[in-house]
Amino acid sequence: MHSNHLLVTSALSAVLAMGLGASAHAETGAKEKCFGMAKAGANDCANLSGTHSCAGLAKVDHGADEWNYVAKGSCHALGGRTLDEVKAGAKGGGK
């Protein structure tokens, strides 16, 4: 009986954690897209070049048109570039 309770508790915890993670991505007001710092398979959504339209499909680490949401104002510290810089072709942020 104890193992069933542990299993149910673990499953419920996992479901709640997934829900919290999804809501964190939905709150983009305090976040910004940071380009050039996503790891392969760990981008947040479609890339700028349009070669894919989904999260987790980046083929290489630090692809210039791949991005992740980061805390607003922290992109340069992470070695990335903002959307405005990418669109302008700027070299800011080191990538």
Rank of each mutant, 00 (worst) to 15 (best):
A30W: 00
G80L: 00
K72A: 12
L12I: 15
L6A: 15
N68G: 04
M37Q: 07
D84Q: 13
Y69M: 06
A42D: 09
A40Q: 04
A46L: 11
A90V: 11
A22G: 03
A17G: 10
A17T: 13
G19W: 03
A26C: 10
K87A: 11
A77R: 04
D84E: 14
A55W: 05
A24T: 09
V70Y: 00
T82K: 03
L6P: 08
M1N: 13
G92E: 06
G63R: 06
V15A: 15
S23D: 12
G89R: 02
G63W: 15
L16I: 07
K33S: 08
T51W: 09
T51M: 01
G29M: 12
S13H: 11
A11N: 14
A24D: 09
A58C: 09
M37N: 11
K31E: 00
A14W: 10
L83Q: 11
L16T: 05
V60K: 09
A14C: 06
G21T: 01
L57Y: 09
A55R: 05
G36N: 08
H5C: 12
S23K: 14
C75S: 06
K33W: 03
S3K: 12
A17H: 13
T9F: 15
H25G: 09
A55V: 02
H52W: 14
A40V: 02
V15G: 04
S13L: 15
K72P: 00
V15M: 09
A22C: 10
L57F: 07
L16N: 08
K91L: 12
K91W: 02
G21S: 07
H2S: 14
A42F: 10
G93Y: 06
N47H: 07
A22S: 06
G19V: 01
A90H: 11
C34V: 06
R81F: 01
G63Y: 11
Y69H: 00
K95Y: 02
G89E: 10
M18P: 03
C75Q: 01
H62N: 15
A77G: 14
K95A: 06
L7R: 15
K31Y: 00
S49E: 15
G56S: 05
A46C: 14
G79H: 02
N47W: 03
M37T: 14
A77C: 07
N68R: 08
A17E: 07
G92L: 03
H5F: 13
L20M: 13
H5L: 15
L48Q: 12
A17P: 10
L83A: 08
A46S: 14
D65E: 13
L83T: 13
A24P: 03
K87C: 03
A11Q: 13
C34E: 03
L48R: 12
D65I: 07
M37P: 04
G94T: 03
E27S: 08
H2E: 11
G93K: 04
W67Y: 10
K72Q: 11
V70A: 02
H76M: 07
S3P: 08
A90K: 14
G92K: 07
L16G: 01
K31V: 02
R81C: 10
S49A: 10
D61C: 08
K72F: 06
K91F: 04
D61I: 06
L12A: 13
V15P: 03
K59P: 04
G93C: 05
S74V: 00
S49G: 14
A55D: 01
L83H: 14
H25K: 12
M1C: 06
H5N: 15
T9D: 11
